[in-house]
Simulated assay, not measured.
Amino acid sequence: MKIGYARVSTLDQNSELQLDALKVAGCEKIFQDKISGSTADRPGLAEALAYVRPDDSLVVWRLDRLGRSLKHLIEVVEGLEGRGVGFVSLQEGFDTTTSGGKLVFQIFGALAEFEKNLIRERTNAGLAAARARGRKGGRKEKLTASQVETMRKMSASRQHTVAEICRVMSITKPTYYRYMEANHGKDR
């Protein structure tokens, strides 16, 4: 059975073109969303994914109607494939129920993996270059050295609870403990 999925980004847009194409393609049931593609929570897509069964095909008018990104698209299609469900994109003309369609999608997956690795390599190279120039990465310290010393003295005096110290210093308990452990062990 062919199950259709249509999506338009705004309430002003019209999904008739997609719905007509899905009907012509033989979709017996069609789910739809009127929501931005960048939104993770798409009820129509969730319903379509829950509805499809092995040997069904999920059909979309264009790839960008299904996936928020190439990575998301690949995850959805791999999930479908793992359940024995095919995927068809009408405009791009591929169908994962055919060997040619599977090949095209595997190439998409390989390109996405390649892109992810390139981004990781560039990020690591950038971090290494910054370290070589003396830059330290990460979040700025929440407390100055004198504030940490004040906090340590308050704790050592045993006149203040951890909650009171956190309130005075405007920090959370995990931050308090992290500073205490980083500064002379577990003085609490």
Rank of each mutant, 00 (worst) to 15 (best):
K23S: 11
L80D: 00
A132L: 10
A125C: 05
S146Q: 12
E113A: 12
L19Q: 05
L45N: 01
P43W: 01
M154C: 06
G37R: 04
K23N: 09
G185T: 11
R53D: 11
L103F: 09
Q147A: 05
R188K: 15
V8W: 00
V148G: 07
M1K: 13
N117R: 13
A129L: 12
I165V: 15
I171F: 01
L103V: 06
S155H: 04
Y177K: 09
G44N: 08
R152L: 12
T144P: 03
Y179K: 03
L111I: 05
D95P: 10
L49R: 08
H160N: 10
I30F: 11
R53C: 10
A145H: 12
A112E: 02
A129N: 08
Y5A: 03
L127S: 10
D12E: 15
K142A: 14
Q13L: 05
Q147D: 09
L45C: 05
C27R: 02
E28W: 06
H160P: 00
A50Q: 15
T98D: 06
S15C: 11
A112Q: 01
Q32S: 12
G109V: 03
S38A: 14
K29A: 02
R53G: 07
Y51H: 15
F114W: 14
T161Q: 08
R158M: 11
R188V: 12
A156P: 02
L143G: 01
T10E: 07
T144M: 09
D33L: 05
E181F: 12
N117C: 03
L127E: 10
R122P: 06
Y179S: 03
E28H: 08
L118A: 06
E28Y: 05
G26W: 05
K116M: 11
V148F: 08
D33Y: 02
K136T: 12
V76L: 08
R120P: 00
G79V: 04
Y5C: 02
A145F: 11
A25E: 09
F108R: 02
G137K: 09
N14Q: 08
F31Q: 05
V24H: 12
K102P: 00
Y5M: 02
P54C: 13
R65A: 03
G84E: 08
Q13K: 06
S57I: 02
Q91M: 11
V52I: 07
D187G: 14
G79M: 04
A110H: 08
V85H: 01
R42W: 09
A46M: 14
G79W: 00
R122Y: 12
I30Q: 10
G138W: 02
Q91N: 11
R68I: 09
M180F: 07
A132S: 10
Q91P: 01
L118G: 03
S57T: 12
M180L: 10
